[in-house]
Amino acid sequence: MPSETPQAEVGPTGCPHRSGPHSAKGSLEKGSPEDKEAKEPLWIRPDAPSRCTWQLGRPASESPHHHTAPAKSPKILPDILKKIGDTPMVRINKIGKKFGLKCELLAKCEFFNAGGSVKDRISLRMIEDAERDGTLKPGDTIIEPTSGNTGIGLALAAAVRGYRCIIVMPEKMSSEKVDVLRALGAEIVRTPTNARFDSPESHVGVAWRLKNEIPNSHILDQYRNASNPLAHYDTTADEILQQCDGKLDMLVASVGTGGTITGIARKLKEKCPGCRIIGVDPEGSILAEPEELNQTEQTTYEVEGIGYDFIPTVLDRTVVDKWFKSNDEEAFTFARMLIAQEGLLCGGSAGSTVAVAVKAAQELQEGQRCVVILPDSVRNYMTKFLSDRWMLQKGFLKEEDLTEKKPWWWHLRVQELGLSAPLTVLPTITCGHTIEILREKGFDQAPVVDEAGVILGMVTLGNMLSSLLAGKVQPSDQVGKVIYKQFKQIRLTDTLGRLSHILEMDHFALVV
Score class of each variant (00 low, 15 high):
residue 7 Q to C: 13
residue 12 P to N: 10
residue 14 G to H: 11
residue 16 P to K: 11
residue 17 H to R: 06
residue 23 S to F: 14
residue 25 K to F: 08
residue 32 S to M: 03
residue 35 D to F: 01
residue 37 E to Y: 15
residue 39 K to L: 15
residue 40 E to L: 15
residue 43 W to V: 14
residue 45 R to G: 14
residue 51 R to V: 07
residue 54 W to I: 06
residue 57 G to E: 13
residue 59 P to A: 03
residue 60 A to S: 10
residue 60 A to I: 11
residue 60 A to P: 11
residue 62 E to D: 15
residue 62 E to Q: 14
residue 69 A to F: 14
residue 70 P to D: 10
residue 71 A to V: 15
residue 71 A to L: 13
residue 75 K to T: 10
residue 76 I to P: 12
residue 81 L to D: 05
residue 82 K to M: 10
residue 84 I to L: 14
residue 90 V to K: 03
residue 90 V to L: 03
residue 94 K to H: 13
residue 95 I to S: 02
residue 96 G to L: 05
residue 97 K to C: 01
residue 99 F to R: 07
residue 101 L to G: 01
residue 107 A to P: 06
residue 107 A to D: 07
residue 108 K to Q: 04
residue 110 E to M: 04
residue 110 E to A: 02
residue 116 G to N: 07
residue 117 S to R: 04
residue 122 I to S: 00
residue 125 R to V: 02
residue 128 E to N: 07
residue 128 E to S: 06
residue 130 A to T: 08
residue 131 E to P: 04
residue 132 R to V: 01
residue 135 T to H: 11
residue 137 K to E: 07
residue 139 G to M: 06
residue 140 D to S: 11
residue 141 T to I: 10
residue 141 T to E: 04
residue 147 S to N: 02
residue 156 L to W: 00
residue 161 R to C: 08
residue 163 Y to V: 00
residue 166 I to K: 07
residue 172 K to Q: 07
residue 174 S to R: 00
residue 175 S to E: 14
residue 180 V to N: 00
residue 185 G to Q: 01
residue 186 A to L: 01
residue 192 P to Y: 02
residue 194 N to K: 12
residue 197 F to I: 14
residue 197 F to E: 07
residue 203 H to A: 12
residue 203 H to C: 05
residue 204 V to H: 09
residue 207 A to G: 04
residue 208 W to H: 10
residue 213 E to C: 08
residue 214 I to L: 07
residue 220 L to H: 00
residue 221 D to W: 02
residue 227 S to D: 10
residue 228 N to I: 01
residue 229 P to F: 04
residue 231 A to R: 02
residue 232 H to F: 04
residue 233 Y to I: 00
residue 233 Y to A: 00
residue 243 Q to H: 08
residue 245 D to K: 03
residue 248 L to G: 01
residue 251 L to V: 11
residue 254 S to I: 05
residue 255 V to W: 02
residue 256 G to V: 00
residue 257 T to M: 01
residue 258 G to K: 02
residue 259 G to T: 00
residue 264 I to P: 00
residue 266 R to Y: 09
residue 267 K to D: 07
residue 268 L to G: 00
residue 268 L to K: 03
residue 268 L to F: 07
residue 273 P to Q: 08
residue 274 G to E: 10
